[in-house]
Nucleic acid binder design. Structure first.
Lengths: 225, 225, 225, 225
DNA sequence: AATGAATGAGCGTTCATTCAT
DNA sequence: TATGAATGAACGCTCATTCAT
């Protein structure tokens, strides 16, 4: 692509053709649209995940989504936009999950297990795992996307975690180091995401156990004596 | 892909320091060979690091290394081979570093700082950081490489750490969980490697402090009271 | 192509590999280069002429030039550049031809025939005819090229003609209107260039006779009584 | 191709002035049809004129005409047909204008100005200018169209002019050369049409003055003494 | 060993055309 | 008649790889 300098902004989607006065369509038009868009996103995730963004072919994405190649361009400006929409759309909902933690006030022991469980069920066992990996893996070449992710997701997660940890630290329940570096909490989760697909075939990793052990260690055992 | 800026003016290839009029071989061939191979590997690391494996152009690698494009093929079978050699050659020496820990028997408090220091000086502040990132980032598409890395490097690191941690656990100094999941020790290091380049511009991360805090937390504070 | 906004400047050609100290090559490298470049330009002219710039396929240009498609890009930045180089290279020499007229001082009757002859032999019967047509036909979409053509060729031609006509007008030999509108001199030549290929099959046009008649008319018969 | 700017914000299609709730046919179908066809032709002229036939997008034509893309195909077989209908419909009326000259018998001096005026007001200052340019520019790829234009328009214009000029030549008022080459009369007009858009920004051209000067020159001054 | 011009398969993107509604 | 989502052939451009020198 002799290419422009990025393209900024959001997706310029087909405006889904108002459902019609007398109900021409049995299936609402915007459901079809959503379906096609979703099919493309799903297919893209699979192709991007297995081949990497650069090596993934839109031909394969289209085939896997069951649409023609040109159809992709009805929903996404270009390959970059498709990638960014995939990441945005998948990771944005994470905000809510973690924001929910903000005002939690359960005991550390239970909280550790709760966070571990959230990670496993809300990320590791879902599509989001692959999207997180893609975000981290390809993010350097999508500065706008990295910024979005930091501003909309990461900084809020960190903020919520900090608030939670600060209160616990004030009560002497956790090390103040965690307030400074909340990244410590999720680090093994990130490692687990990469471990799978690289080394799982040599040495499988029990992610739930790993996360629980880790969180017990830093949240519970780590409390001041 | 967007293949943005790049390409710009960029340094024209500096002919390799004119070896004299006719004298092809004042410098022993072996050294020249090693030099050229090394130059290519160095150039490759820089290009792969900044553009990613797929988007990196061998043209740029050659230019940066000060050799002709064809020369790369005298030293490496193809682009894949160049990548794998880069990772192998750079990460293999890591084995020694960790093996050295195997028989260490210093106090946990000191050991935490020692490992943190090792990570920062031997990986984070060197080229190896970029190679580790590349290994993790692109490793899925190089199963042979992942296998090499696991067998030659990772499993030995893990083995050494386990031995160390097992002894400490036997003395009740660290949680047995660490023996089961030594990945916990280095997880924040991995996160830090990705954090840079993605989010550093929004929120810089003091890697040394992070590693020390983390290791104190899991190795020292974590001991049974 | 998401595409850049034009590219300005001249062609970035292969620097033709200095002919070598001890004469490795029998055929000088830059002759080969010139040949290939010239072959591409010739092929491009034929394809552009018959299909128009937009509809011409670089595949066909390459095939006709006897080179691979990628080879075109060793000599020209892109399709636009190829077109512009074709026009520049072909029309630039026209300057000299007309500049030569500047100091002519032959009688009008002879001058009319001379200019007609110049047009016919130097433009109409050569490749330049097609390039002039392309320049006029496609020039709107190549503002840089139109500017080049105006500055380097047209304004000089007009200047030379004006000087010539002014002197003749001062002597009362030609109408002052020609000094104001030297375009009148060549207008039938432009028409002839388009006539061919459009209407020649219905009504052939004797270009030499047309030009001579026209120039006699405006240069000679037109003189004040 | 470069397909530069274009695309910009641009007017969203203004729904065709809401024809009422259910009333499909307040306006007679014929008129609506004529309107839509005309709107498409007008839009096509603007798009073809500014982008050239090949680079013009039917999407843009539709948007500019305020109809859906598919609607174009209700009125025209395909893009080629649209182009040909545009040229035919616009240029056919020219016949009448020139036929009117056939029996004129005004003095040369007045006739020169009359023809100049006709050209300026009937072609240069109207849409026809653009259509003439398109016809000449793209005509090579539309042999049928060129034939139509020659047979229906050009040959009649030439015939009318010849008749007129023949009578004047018989009376010794104009050069017999003009009878042979009536193209000479309009040549500067063709040049003017191309001059605009190519070189007008560097050197504007007073078309009316040009045409009057030219026609005075060849019709009036040129008469035998 | 070293070069770099040449190759051509491959891919992203466009857009005329179709057709179900 | 009108729509506009969908199609897929087509084309410009890239770049890993080859090979004559």
């Amino acid at each position: 692509m002799a290419r422009q300098g990025k393209r900024g902004g959001a997706a310029r989607l087909r405006k889904p053709a108002a459902i019609g006065q007398r109900g021409r369509a049995i299936v609402p038009v915007d459901v079809v649209t959503r379906d096609k868009r979703a099919a493309i996103l799903t297919a893209a995730l699979e192709e991007f995940s297995s081949a990497g963004f650069a090596a993934a072919r839109l031909d394969d994405v289209a085939r896997r989504a069951g649409v023609a190649k040109g159809t992709i361009y009805l929903y996404f400006r270009d390959k970059d936009d498709l990638f960014q929409e995939l990441v945005r759309g998948t990771l944005a909902p994470l905000i809510g999950i973690v924001e929910g933690l903000r005002d939690t006030d359960i005991p550390m022991r239970a909280l550790a297990d709760h966070i571990a469980e959230l990670f496993v069920t809300q990320i590791y066992m879902t599509n989001r795992k692959n999207v997180v990996r893609l975000m981290i893996t390809e993010g350097r070449r999508f500065p706008k996307l990295a910024e979005f992710y930091y501003r909309e997701v990461l900084s809020r997660m960190i903020g919520a975690l900090r608030a939670l940890l600060q209160r616990a630290a004030d009560r002497g329940e956790v090390s103040p180091a965690l307030v400074q570096f909340p990244q410590i909490l999720v680090a093994p989760g990130i490692v687990a995401i990469f471990w799978e697909g690289l080394f799982d075939r040599f040495e499988p990793l029990d992610v739930r156990a790993l996360m629980k052990a880790h969180l017990q260690l830093v949240l519970v055992s780590g409390r001041a004596p």
